[in-house]
Write a protein that binds this DNA or RNA. Structure first.
Lengths: 237, 237
DNA sequence: GTCATTTGTGACCGATTGGTCATTTGTCGT
DNA sequence: ACGACAAATGACCAATCGGTCACAAATGAC
């Protein structure tokens, strides 16, 4: 479980008051609405990542030291809270600069892909992202489709174009992209993504240098891809 | 959603009786205990695969045309039913012959891996397997760990040994396996597995010839693996 | 300090949940 | 045809769920 929440959340532990009998007792704490809302979303992201989207609001509230009624002051329904969690976890974790990085022909494609997947893994390899994404996918949430489209238009297809250029093959504009060459880069994506699955869904402890592994993955694919692309472009299937 | 259940389940549609007023009315159906139990497990596999392990027993019962009380005649608790579903879905979907196939040096490793992953995909690429496995993983069920161990001992490590043999590198017995070379084959596994994720978790419609894709994946990895293995064996890291 | 504002509480609601059990009803041997 | 046994039902239970609301209690402006 990530500790990001505890690190970014300001230290607002409930004040303690001394009871007449001497026992410490936490008093009710009133936070500014905006701050409390932030806290709830962040805590909900951790909570739903761990317990699934069916986790109870009462238990979530307990991790915040409030009652579940308080949550409904900020969100009209649990579903609305979950949508906010989606936004919080997924929105703008995709760096628009990555699109430029992939097309930067001043460095070899191998280097670009290694740099990209290094940065990408850095962004999405945590329990919040990986697990909530899986929960959402299993639930059939449309967010999943939006994400897949993003990957295809911003990563897979550009990468196909770049590899064609590096191999001196026709451009995507002149020769339509084939399913087979798209699949080559989906394969690379799967290699990296599966690292995250093993770690955050299977709960395997990671072994080996992740940067090394990602670099190996990229090099392996680029070693085999020329054969695939030349065949795919030749037979167009 | 797979139709396997409907195909293997015998045609035992409830008998219809004519009511006095002329409307058709289904009568109560008494099945032999063993047969009903089989039906419940198979229906539960489909049901939980679609709705998740938190799906209600009442709804599951509805798909069988019985009441949820009947389920508890055969299973002491919902949890017990789920365990039975795990067994039904996962047990003996791993073909022990695969271990021999991987070590059959009468054919090149490329062919062996392609044949293996073709058969493997055939077995696990359905909604029951893929989705229930993900649900179980997210839940932290120990079955996941057992599965990963199986893959490692029966697939990853043997494959590493075979590739070393094909490249004329030291045997696993003489030079310990490294995390880096294991990761090479986890990468291949991830490529194939991610195909299933896209199809059954993301709900993407498949495009392209799956056999072709798997063959491309294997060839790509084997094209890049020699570099990885030689480096890993040389530096032992 | 005082008081209005607004944050948070706790009791409550109705629907849903897994699970139980006395009763009903199909099925099969005779 | 008929009884005995097993299979299935439906009413019921207690716990849990998301959500509401009247009220209590911090907080900040003055």
């Amino acid at each position: 479980m990530t500790n990001r929440s505890q690190m970014t959340r300001p230290a607002t532990r409930p004040t303690m008051k001394q009871s007449p009998d001497g026992s410490a007792k936490r008093t009710r704490q009133h936070l500014p609405a905006a701050e409390r809302e932030r806290q709830i979303v962040e805590a909900a992201a951790d909570f739903f990542a761990e317990h699934g989207l069916e986790g109870q609001t009462r238990e979530l509230a307990k991790t915040l030291g409030i009652t579940h009624s308080a949550i409904f002051r900020y969100f009209p329904s649990k579903e609305a809270l979950i949508e906010r969690v989606y936004d919080h976890v997924f929105l703008s974790r995709w760096d628009p600069d990555w699109r430029g990085l992939l097309s930067d022909r001043s460095q070899p494609l191998e280097q670009r892909l290694i740099r990209f997947y290094h940065a990408y893994a850095e962004r999405i390899f945590d329990a919040q992202w990986m697990r909530i994404f899986m929960f959402a996918g299993l639930k059939g949430h449309p967010m999943t489709n939006r994400y897949v489209s993003l990957i295809r238009t911003q990563l897979i297809r550009p990468a196909c174009g770049e590899l064609r250029a590096e191999l001196g093959l026709p451009t995507l504009a002149s020769l339509p992209i084939t399913a087979r060459e798209e699949e080559a880069f989906w394969a690379l994506h799967g290699m990296v993504f599966y690292l995250g699955i093993r770690k955050f869904i299977y709960g395997m402890r990671t072994q080996g240098d992740q940067s090394q592994i990602i670099a190996d993955d990229v090099r392996a694919l680029l070693a085999g891809a020329p054969f695939i692309l030349r065949a795919a472009c030749g037979t167009s299937g």
